[in-house]
Design a protein around this nucleic acid. Structure first.
Length: 401
DNA sequence: CCTCCACCGGAAAGCCGGGTCA
DNA sequence: TGACCCGGCTTTCCGGTGGAGG
């Protein structure tokens, strides 16, 4: 019975024509053959990196620009082309791409250097060794091969804010005592991040700076059209869909990644509903879905203590004219801990947890002064009403143990 | 204009679990 | 096995501080 029904399901699934032709083209890892509106940046990067083909050291570069302005894509595209030539001509050149934001993999000094060493073929344990030791292994791996290395550090601002600039300092000085050359390419969302860098690191790192301005709506449309052509079958894209995605993405700042995600999710929704066309309504749905998924996901992945704090905030919310303050949250949190038999954290820590909620956007917490009655954070929920019950259920689930 | 509340938020240190190495 | 190392989480300590109310 059941099996037969399932067979039917798969059959229908198989027959159903998919709105997608090549979903890859809408994913952020996809590197298209041309990159619209980044010709200038590509040319600059190419100029700077070209000497590496002749075995010369190239200047270090910093790439700036907000999220979704094509920094990562552009550098990957350019270095890919560079690498193709190097391989064809048998030129020793190595390109290491590191995303410093990847949690638990490259967000500390130890892990960054360990990862670099690994890319050069050295096995480094994930922990246990003194950092010194890891550096030695990395240097050795470098020196052994007489060749140029281009090290791309994506989200370099994250690295600096979490791990400091020690690693960068050491990396920028390597060229002094090793056979092989290394050039650094830093990618950052934050233009100001160089300010808290050691001056020596700063000057060395930013020998060249390239800025990626936000795309405007028209440019994003061009990008979407290019990708959509690859991704979708003919005629499934309804009128105004591209425009709408572009408009949404351009609203705050020209984030092409967001636009592509909108388009992809809209397509997925259309596909799931077996619609034969992607219409602008699906774009609206996609926007909501992305938003909600983000929040749900953010909540689910939090540990128990965080759930207790969030639950306290939610419980304090109903029927409040004003907002919620840290002190009240802490009081409720404490009693909740008592009821559930959880160890109680200090208010200092809870304060930090609330800040973290603020940062990921499920709560809004502003420091205000109540004058005579002290200074505190004014907290309000940022979770849409529609998914609040679901969030609450998730929280209750983990709390009652 | 001064006070003083109820926290904020930086710095440093401790604890713990995961690991290496000889 | 014991000495050491790293990193995440937490506590401890403590110097601020915006502004209502005196």
């Amino acid at each position: 019975m059941v099996e037969r029904g399932l067979d039917g399901f798969f059959e229908v699934f198989l027959r159903k024509k998919s709105a997608f032709f090549d979903k890859k083209a809408l994913q952020s890892s996809y590197i298209p053959e041309t990159i619209p509106h980044r010709e200038e940046q590509i040319k600059q990067i190419a100029n700077i990196l070209a000497p590496s083909l002749k075995g010369d050291k190239t200047s270090n570069i910093l790439l700036y620009g907000k999220t979704g302005t094509g920094k990562t894509l552009t550098i990957k595209y350019t270095t890919k082309k560079l690498m193709e030539v190097a391989e064809r001509e048998n030129i020793p050149l190595k390109i290491l791409y590191i995303n410093c934001k990847l949690k638990r993999s490259t967000d500390t000094e130890y892990r960054l250097i360990a990862q670099l060493a690994r890319e050069l073929g050295k096995a480094i344990p994930p922990t246990g060794l003194p950092t010194e030791e890891v550096y030695r292994a990395f240097f050795k791996a470098l020196g052994r091969q007489k060749q140029n290395h281009i090290i791309i550090l994506d989200e370099i601002d994250q690295l600096v804010s979490k791990a400091g600039d020690n690693a960068l300092y050491n990396l920028t000085r390597i060229n002094e005592d090793t056979e092989s050359q290394i050039s650094l390419v830093g990618i950052s969302n934050d233009i100001m991040f160089v300010d808290n860098l050691d001056p020596r690191v700063r000057s060395s790192l930013s020998e060249e700076e390239i800025v990626f301005p936000p795309y405007n709506a028209v440019q994003i449309q061009a990008i979407l059209r290019q990708r959509a052509e690859q991704a979708f079958n003919k005629d499934v894209l309804g009128n105004g869909v591209v425009e709408k995605c572009a408009a949404y993405a351009a609203r705050d700042h020209g984030d092409a990644r967001r636009a592509l995600e909108l388009l992809r999710v809209a397509g997925e929704i259309a596909g799931r509903k077996s619609a034969d066309k992607i219409t602008t309504e699906f774009v609206d749905e996609a926007e909501q879905k992305i938003d909600r998924d983000r929040i749900i996901d953010a909540v689910v992945t939090q540990p128990k203590q965080y759930h207790l704090v969030l639950y306290s905030i939610i419980s304090l919310r109903p029927g409040r004219k004003g907002n919620i303050f840290t002190g009240e949250v802490y009081e409720l949190y404490k009693s909740l801990c008592g009821k559930t038999g959880t160890s109680v954290l200090t208010q200092r820590r809870i304060s930090d947890i609330i800040s973290e909620f603020d940062m990921i956007g499920i709560v809004n917490a502003k420091v205000i002064s109540k004058g005579r009655y002290g200074r505190t954070r004014e907290i309000s929920l940022e979770i849409p009403e529609e998914i609040l019950p679901r969030v609450k259920a998730i929280l209750e689930d983990t709390i009652r143990v």
